[in-house]
Nucleic acid binder design. Sequence first.
DNA 1: ACCTGAACACCGTTCAAGT
DNA 2: ACCTGAACACCGTTCAAGT
Lengths: 213, 213
Amino acid sequence: MLRLSTFVSENWAVKPDRPYHHGNLKDALLEAAVALIAEVGPQAFTLREVARRAGVSHNAPYRHFQDRDELLAAVAAQGFGRLTASMRRASSAGETALERWRLCGRGYIAFALEWPEHFTVMFEAAFDVSQYPECGAAGRAAFETLVERIREAQAEGGMPEGDPMPRALVSWAGVHGLAKLAISRRLPMEPEQVLGFFDGFGAEAMLRGMAAR
Amino acid sequence: MLRLSTFVSENWAVKPDRPYHHGNLKDALLEAAVALIAEVGPQAFTLREVARRAGVSHNAPYRHFQDRDELLAAVAAQGFGRLTASMRRASSAGETALERWRLCGRGYIAFALEWPEHFTVMFEAAFDVSQYPECGAAGRAAFETLVERIREAQAEGGMPEGDPMPRALVSWAGVHGLAKLAISRRLPMEPEQVLGFFDGFGAEAMLRGMAAR
DNA sequence: ACCTGAACACCGTTCAAGT
DNA sequence: ACCTGAACACCGTTCAAGT
């Protein structure tokens, strides 16, 4: 005779081991979100699938994130932190300020190539992630890393004096465009070749100008 | 007494006026799609809403487009055509090749500012729109417009000889990055100010280099 | 506090059916 | 050929309920 009660009590026995309190559900959701975005992209990413992977019901995430956008903003904030770290790590090897500018840009592109899913969420989310306080601050810190390279170059005489902002914006546009076109596979080279292109030609062209011989 | 049959026959009377054959449903859908994307963005854009606006049932679009992506690809193809036109129109006013290079980049940014919805679909669609034949050709034609400016500048002596490709790629990255950051509202200026920034500083910085005094 | 299942109003896509 | 309504398997989000 099939004893339903056995299965029922077995099922009940499993749950009480960790009935609630996932431990750290918030972090688990964030991790699952990053992994899912890496697999299917930020657009196909769904909150319900994230919950499934974290082993909770489809609305448990609402305890930790107000909505889908807030979870994406958390992914973006993590991304801005990694971007800043990538630029700092790369820059530190430079001897001159101009060399550090070059390496900082290299770090920006390297981040995009290593974490394309973060990069995409940070810059292509349907909403402006920097509207979320933690993202706004992290984004400003990342930009400040680049501005600092300009200031150093000016102090060393490698770049003209004056407001560093215009040069920071053009630098940003250059590396951002290259990084973005690379991970979107729009360039006539493999993404892995883009850092080599930047090292061998791109950085120098941005520093010395398109018209330079 | 309420005569239901009257209403029923009135409803029937409306339909036969244009029962099928929307005239040109394909173009109507494309137009509705562009308008909808402009309103809600490419992510919130839905095929069902496009159909609603075109006045057809939610699956009538499948007669003209295989799926949602194919309609987006059609929007992107239209966008690449307008981008090429914008660059050509702007370039034509230049006296020297370097001036035409500058104006071509200006046309690129102007297109993004004028048709941000097309620009976004062209470059941020979840799938690679250039996989669609008509988009691929239109995208290559747009890029070729930029390469041509480099070749002209080389012929005139304004840029060093050699493969124009590396300079075309760096030029593309610069204007693409500026355009993209502008319409994403990530720059510390209003989108309308970005063309002025390009005219007053950006283009010169790209041509003469960040380190130039 | 934290999590659940049921429910609501949507999607994209498919299919058999109508003219 | 071109369009329709019904159906399927999904979403994000809300809510009353359980521990």
